[in-house]
Design a protein around this nucleic acid. Sequence first.
DNA 1: GTCTATAGTTGGATAGAC
DNA 2: GTCTATCCAACTATAGAC
Lengths: 189, 189
Amino acid sequence: MKKKESTKDVILESASNLFKLQGYHGTGVSQIIEKSGAPKGSLYYHFPKGKEEIATEAVNLMKHHVVGLVLKDLSTKDNLVEAFQYHVNRLASLFDKNGIMDCLHMGVIASETAMTHESIRIACDAAYKDWQSLYANKLEEFGFESEKAKELSITINAMIEGACILSMTSKSGYPLRCIARQLPMLLAK
Amino acid sequence: MKKKESTKDVILESASNLFKLQGYHGTGVSQIIEKSGAPKGSLYYHFPKGKEEIATEAVNLMKHHVVGLVLKDLSTKDNLVEAFQYHVNRLASLFDKNGIMDCLHMGVIASETAMTHESIRIACDAAYKDWQSLYANKLEEFGFESEKAKELSITINAMIEGACILSMTSKSGYPLRCIARQLPMLLAK
DNA sequence: GTCTATAGTTGGATAGAC
DNA sequence: GTCTATCCAACTATAGAC
């Protein structure tokens, strides 16, 4: 049984893609309704609080999407370092192939709204913490003590976010591949 | 002899501060002229190509500012790891004190414009590469081979940019301090 | 070189018919 | 729940007096 995609879901998916690429202020409500095909009235029916509410829910959608992606990537290898390297290198390959950072880069919207739109900031914070938990779980699985695993998970999260920016700016997956090669030192016991 | 600050410089400094905090699309030309005190006519006299030209030159200003800051921070310690840790921890302290990431965070404007405003992208790319050169020089000074130094410098750059985002999102300098503590592993020989 | 006034467009948001 | 028409504020940019 195929689940019909509701108008709300269509709007949210279009919004999520646009926000990832152009950021919060760079994306207009009119652009969202144009891409989703929905009329402006529907949008304000489903999201009465307007743009900020759409962005908050779009961030939650990105969060769930990335959780799935990370879980899949990290479970492909038996070796800890190789698992994380596979994850990062796959992001690099996707970027080189598509020319856009179409996954796992929330940094733009997070930095833009951190000091001005509290509800979006909270959603971004929750997303980052969820991803870090996935990393930390994997690290503990391989013998890292809880506190150390937490610090490493934050470091890995930071490296990836930063490398996404450097890759976009230099138009090359090289920075991402570069941090992948430093993971053995970082995760040495 | 005190050098008088030209109208152009005042505009550029205001623009630079606003772009760092609010990003490219989040900052209006009207806001820049309001903060700088200059009238709109002057702005378009000094920057005929408008907002994009202001942003490009504002990024160059940030670049030079950070170059000075990095050179100063890295020269305070004789020990390699301690020098970099001092640098990162100082960013964390500044953030905790001021509540804003007022230095060394160009990620917002870089990601926002990477795919749409080529001249700004090039300016950001040049800034990142300049900072990485400073890091790489320090690393080579302490015996790292050229290629390895380059990869580490990119990694450090990525970690800092990413940690700035996480610190802003979580409203705490903790992520920055966290990556500082992982530097001994990363820079071990 | 400096400043004002304003053009022209797009932004987010709303009212009300269906 | 869906869609259209429309409001008003904000935006970038320009023209032209001084």
